[in-house]
Design a protein around this nucleic acid. Sequence first.
DNA 1: CTTTTGACGCGTA
DNA 2: CTACGCGCCAAAA
Length: 123
Amino acid sequence: MPASINCEGIYAKIYRCITSIPEGRVATYGQIAELCGASGARQVGYALSATPVELDIPWHRVINAKGEVSCRSHGAGDRIQLQRLAAEGVVPGRQGRIDLTRYRWQPSPGNLPEDEFDLPGWG
DNA sequence: CTTTTGACGCGTA
DNA sequence: CTACGCGCCAAAA
């Protein structure tokens, strides 16, 4: 990892937390915030905006509380995010929103997704 | 040191 | 459903 990222920095924590999101699963900004001890969802958003590409973290698995991909001021990141999510089976529902009740990452032992519901093909 | 810049969440009306 | 306001903090220049 780049030297510009301190292991004890809150951003680094956020990055690591996001790295733990399994494939085919998503997490909300607020969820990540509480998970890594950030001050708030906004901090996670700030961190994500500054995500170094060399980290190769699954940043696309982080969406907002509405189950929608956040719009950003610059670049086509949102489009890429949708694209990558669809590539791993995470697709928006009929309302154009990702069903958090189905795709939300639940970092609890024994509650892992592989033991639960089926992912794609529900529509 | 100061200033700028952001991928949010929630309550309320 | 939309609109508005507030809270919040790190990193780079």
